[in-house]
Design a protein around this nucleic acid. Sequence first.
DNA 1: GTGGGATGGGCAA
DNA 2: TGCCCCTCCCACA
Length: 264
Amino acid sequence: MPEGNEIHRFAKRHAAAFAGKRVSVDSPNKAFPDADALHNRKLHAVRAHGKHLGYVFGPDLILHVHLGMYGDFWEGKMPLPPEKGALRLRIWTRSDWLELRGATDCSIFDAAKWQSLLARLGPDPLHPNSDPAPAFELMHRRNTPIGQLLMDQSVIAGIGNIYRAELLFRAGLHPRRPGRHVPSPVLQSMWREARRLMPKGMVDRRIVTTEPKDRPHPRGRAHDDEIHYVYRRHGKPCFRCGTKIEKDDMAGRTVYWCPSCQKS
DNA sequence: GTGGGATGGGCAA
DNA sequence: TGCCCCTCCCACA
């Protein structure tokens, strides 16, 4: 489900509902055996970096959640809804509840493990004070295709397959252009675009990356084919030039681009 | 109803 | 590079 923007949204919402409160925690499907260690403890804060979440119950008691491909949260007001599906984790207070299913990781980190996670992640465009220089430097040194570098969480944290495709389209960059052949101003403008687009990207729990002016029906719920310029639009005409969007495998993930708008 | 693919990443080899 | 994790959605029948 998530790219970095949704992770940050979850962090804010979950902090608003649960931070500063003593919470109940359980794991109905027993897939998170350490639920007992958190039960009846106070949640102090919720942190997000890239696609990682940290629920801070204590210095060495941080619940790390990575949603991966399938993971998802649901939230609501009490009472708890009936148990449904593979329910990995529930957190609740007298007023709010939270459910987690399908996550790649849901485990307790101590301070050292959380720090070493942060140390191997690149700068996160969604952190207002993050410094992109190390990411630019890495990209500028490498022959690796820019499409692969954007997905590398140790280079830049939080961008997934959708934003990769859409940021490259907006930058006019072919995904296979080597990192070292991307001019600095283009890297900088991609970083700026990521900071601008990602926070406003969620509409009806979907990532939307097109500008309203490019969507034929701006007032209604956008049709699936209107919410991205290139992502999952292979074989369809580019909104800008009409050329058919292409797709290909890049290091195990599908990348999409307009062969005429995006130059290698 | 069914089957393939998907916004991710760790790990073995 | 390919497999696993293990869930949801959509195209297609």
